[in-house]
């Protein structure tokens, strides 16, 4: 187990190094080559004041990034948690109902919701809360100075909902498709002929055989959630890593862009590492 962990960790680190190289290349290509910028990636220093952070968290040192990291991690946790919980259960239910005509309609509500632009959705919430409750609608307009910061949770939930919906729509589809694929195999027909009930075949055979594969799908939506985070945070004026990235992009602050990219790749890589360990422990490599 430890050997396997070491191997996978090494693979992940190599991939992260490649991602770092790709990020630096993309920054130089975007700003240096296509944008004719005077500053190049090899000329920047991480010890200079972090200008985009001064706007967002009031501190121009890298320590000012910690609250932004916490805020964004909260959103990622909420969105990914919802994706795993709802995506799997909805996908399994959709596959369970596969004998019924029109069972695909079961997936349609989430597919429709996922087509709504996330950045627009959070603006609508802001407009609604402004006109309905007569209080500022965007995330940066109320600062709770004493007592429990319930506004932080409200803001995080508003931002997490569109990301969660996007994740759920993908997760349930891949889960249900994989189960239906398995349910079409000849052994299922054999079990039916042998007299097993539908629920026994589904839960005790198909799902049990697929446990490892279903675990393998658990982190498939993380890149989507992290990519969507950038747009939704800015739209709701939520101070997190997405807003930091956009400020860095607008100010051509290369270290900020690089750090955000590595943070995203690190989360995705860590989730992949945990998933591989879980699958390995299930003996389903």
């Amino acid at each position: 187990m430890i050997r396997f962990f070491g191997q996978r960790l090494l693979v992940m680190l190599v991939r992260l190094v490649i991602v770092a190289i790709l990020l630096v290349t993309a920054i130089e290509l975007g700003y240096g080559v296509l944008g004719n910028s005077d500053v190049h990636v090899w000329e920047v220093s991480f010890s200079d004041p972090v200008v985009p952070l001064a706007e967002l968290s009031g501190s121009s040192t890298w320590e000012g990034m910690i609250p932004l990291l916490k805020s964004s991690m909260l959103i990622v946790g909420l969105a990914w948690g919802a994706t795993v919980l709802v995506g799997y259960s909805w996908g399994i239910l959709a596959a369970r109902l596969r004998q019924f005509k029109g069972h695909h309609l079961f997936l349609v509500p989430w597919l429709v919701l996922a087509s709504i632009p996330g950045f627009w959705w959070v603006i609508q919430v802001a407009i609604y809360s402004y006109f309905k409750w007569e209080r500022p609608g965007f995330a940066n307009e109320v600062v709770v100075e004493s007592g429990p910061d319930l506004m932080q949770w409200w803001n995080a939930v508003v931002v997490a909902i569109p990301l969660g919906v996007l994740g759920i729509s993908v997760q349930m589809r891949v889960v249900s498709e994989r189960i239906r694929e398995e349910a079409g195999l000849p052994f299922v027909r054999g079990l039916h002929r042998a007299g097993y009930s539908e629920s026994e075949i589904f839960y005790k055979n198909i799902l049990r055989r697929l446990t490892g594969e279903l675990v393998r799908l658990s982190d498939a939506t993380l890149p989507l959630i992290l990519g969507g985070l950038i747009f939704v945070e800015v739209a709701f004026r939520y101070e997190g890593m997405g807003s930091f990235l956009i400020s860095s992009l607008q100010l051509s602050y290369f270290p900020g862009i690089f750090v955000t990219g590595i943070w995203m790749a690190g989360i995705i890589g860590l989730a992949a590492l945990i998933r591989e360990m879980v699958v390995h422990s299930l003996g389903d490599d």
């Binding site: 991939r15 992260l16 991602v19 790709l22 990020l23 993309a26 920054i27 290509l29 975007g30 296509l34 890149p223 989507l224 992290l226 990519g227 969507g228 950038i230 747009f231 990235l245 956009i246 992009l249 862009i257 955000t260 990219g261 995203m264 790749a265 995705i268 890589g269 992949a272």
Partner: peptide
């Protein structure tokens, strides 16, 4: 490992 949106935004 890298969201596509990030690459597009940088470029």
């Amino acid at each position: 490992l890298m969201p596509c949106a990030l690459v597009l935004l940088i470029i």
